[in-house]
Simulated assay, not measured.
Amino acid sequence: MTAPDLKPDLKLHAIPDWASVIIRFALEEMAVPHTLVKKDFDAGDLDSPVYRAINPLGLIPAMETPNGPMFETAAILLWLTDRHGSLAPGPQDADRAAFLSWLFFTSNALHPAAMALIYPDRPAGEAAAAAAIAVAHEQVRARLGLVEAMIAAKHPRWLSATEPGVLGYYIGTLVRWMTMLPPAPHAITLTAFPALHAVLAAHEARPAALRVALADGLGPTPFTNPVS
């Protein structure tokens, strides 16, 4: 009798400390076997026709699945949680609607504002970068404030210090990148967001998160006290 094929059926295209690490946190937490396909940005890997067939935008992350290739962080996270039944409310759960709202808020509002803060020349050009930073800083603080208020008021199980979730890993990674920016005048810290700080501290201390952080050289506290 032939042994079953145990090869992972997921291939995650990744660059260390890019958005693919959000997917890695989720896969490791779920204990889902997968193959990591490392890409080299400087070598032009993301512009190759082969990769563009997987992700037409040439961005990270992208994942090859039994259902075909996927891209966009939130889409991959949602597919994984539904497929494996963990780290988020399921389709029939009462808190599914709230979770979806905040997942797409993170993807469509918080993530773009974070990128504008980190790379202000992208939306505004070099000449207007300083103004773009100021706008992005206010957007980020306001949007993190909404997350903070929601956690403090609702104590959702899908973004909590007692239960891991994909949204904690997603927001934690964005916060990591923003708090690694040079300080004032537009520094982002977790001081003003104690409820969120508690959630991210709990997530980064989980064995799965520590394994990813060690593999990618992110340090032992990648969200609350990140190192480059």
Results as ranks from 00 to 15, higher is better:
216 D>P: 12
89 P>D: 06
93 D>G: 08
181 L>N: 05
98 A>D: 13
113 A>H: 02
48 S>I: 06
98 A>F: 06
14 A>K: 06
79 W>N: 02
155 H>G: 00
175 V>W: 05
103 L>R: 00
78 L>H: 08
117 L>W: 01
91 P>E: 06
156 P>I: 04
138 E>Q: 09
39 K>M: 15
210 L>P: 08
195 A>E: 12
30 M>N: 08
221 T>N: 14
112 P>H: 01
183 P>K: 02
111 H>D: 01
75 A>H: 07
199 V>P: 03
164 P>I: 01
217 G>Q: 14
53 A>R: 07
41 F>R: 14
85 G>A: 09
71 F>Q: 02
103 L>I: 03
50 V>Q: 13
108 N>G: 08
227 V>C: 15
111 H>L: 07
173 T>K: 03
23 I>Y: 07
182 P>S: 10
197 H>R: 14
150 M>W: 13
76 I>D: 01
197 H>M: 09
150 M>P: 00
121 D>R: 11
228 S>F: 13
32 V>Q: 15
203 H>D: 11
101 S>L: 05
161 A>Y: 02
216 D>G: 11
227 V>S: 15
88 A>Q: 05
203 H>V: 14
105 F>W: 10
33 P>W: 15
11 K>V: 08
127 A>D: 10
26 A>V: 14
68 G>T: 15
77 L>D: 05
113 A>F: 02
87 L>Y: 03
174 L>D: 04
86 S>Y: 01
111 H>E: 04
104 F>V: 04
79 W>F: 11
23 I>F: 09
138 E>G: 14
176 R>M: 09
47 D>I: 11
86 S>E: 15
50 V>F: 09
197 H>D: 10
2 T>A: 15
29 E>L: 10
194 P>W: 07
117 L>N: 02
141 R>C: 03
208 A>M: 11
105 F>A: 01
199 V>L: 09
44 G>M: 05
182 P>Y: 14
1 M>R: 15
43 A>S: 13
20 S>T: 04
211 R>L: 12
118 I>N: 02
21 V>Q: 13
94 A>Y: 03
217 G>D: 07
122 R>W: 00
110 L>V: 07
216 D>Q: 15
122 R>N: 07
209 A>V: 15
1 M>Q: 10
146 L>M: 11
217 G>W: 08
11 K>A: 13
66 P>C: 13
174 L>P: 00
38 K>D: 10
226 P>V: 15
140 V>F: 02
188 I>T: 06
32 V>N: 13
147 V>F: 09
71 F>V: 02
2 T>D: 12
131 A>P: 12
195 A>Q: 13
51 Y>A: 10
154 K>G: 00
131 A>M: 03
103 L>Y: 02
207 P>K: 05
182 P>V: 03
54 I>K: 13
196 L>F: 12
46 L>T: 08
130 A>S: 08
165 G>W: 03
147 V>E: 01
72 E>N: 10
105 F>M: 06
81 T>S: 10
192 A>R: 02
228 S>G: 12
45 D>P: 15
